[in-house]
Design a protein around this nucleic acid. Structure first.
Length: 199
DNA sequence: GGTGCGATTGCA
DNA sequence: GCAATCGCACCA
């Protein structure tokens, strides 16, 4: 049965309730899935993510405590955190860890879903998957937006780099919280951080 | 109630 | 190199 096969491929709550850095690494190779208004399902293999871990992380929206915008980050793992940045683009995050601990993984790039040109970069990704503010706080265990197991990525194919666009965060900007599939053609950001060479 | 800016992108 | 564009955090 296709329905049951699909359901069994969907990642379950325990996947998301682990530590943020562990979930970030483990999301590489997984498949982001989106049911569209006309009943189709868009799918794209995740190739680039960034971890935002706790309220001590100066690059995280949670570094100044709980606010209206970031409240989804405090939910138990397994929901989406979606926000508008620069007044133009939406960013899609996977909330991780236990409830009350603000942490999430920003999904920065996937391979393009069928019919889309690019999902490379957080803004392009949310456009390709039609993810918007109404998806903020929604479960990743349901039928609208979810992630499937996909294929494992071996450690030797994974590179860690500093996060992109958070230079204001001091020493936290230098932490290697970005995980990519090394040298993948759909990575965003400067070529120097494509992960082809070590870091 | 006013102000400054951002987990980005596309174009000059 | 820089404008676009707006929700919201923060200060008064």
């Amino acid at each position: 049965m296709e329905a049951s096969t699909r359901a069994s491929r969907r990642l379950i709550r325990s996947f998301y309730e682990r530590r943020t850095l562990v979930v970030a690494r483990d999301l590489l190779g997984r498949v982001l899935c989106r049911r569209t208004g006309d009943g189709r399902v868009l799918r794209g293999r995740i190739v680039e993510v960034e971890a935002y871990d706790g309220n001590g992380d100066r690059a995280s929206h949670a570094s100044r405590g709980r606010t209206r915008r970031n409240r989804s980050m405090f939910e138990p793992g397994g929901v989406a955190y979606v926000y508008l940045v620069y007044g133009i683009h939406h960013c899609f995050n996977v909330v991780t860890g236990p409830g009350g601990y603000p942490a999430a993984v920003l999904v920065r790039a996937t391979e393009p879903p069928d019919g889309e040109l690019s999902a490379s970069g957080p803004g392009r990704l949310t456009r390709a998957f039609a993810i918007g503010r109404s998806d903020d706080g929604c479960t990743l265990l349901g039928r609208q937006l979810w992630i499937e197991r996909g294929s494992e990525v071996e450690d030797r194919a994974v590179r860690r780099t500093r996060r992109i666009g958070v230079d204001y965060a001091g020493v936290w900007a230098r932490r290697r919280y970005r995980f990519v599939i090394a040298g993948h053609p759909d990575l965003s950001g400067p070529a120097a951080l494509a992960g082809v060479r070590g870091r």
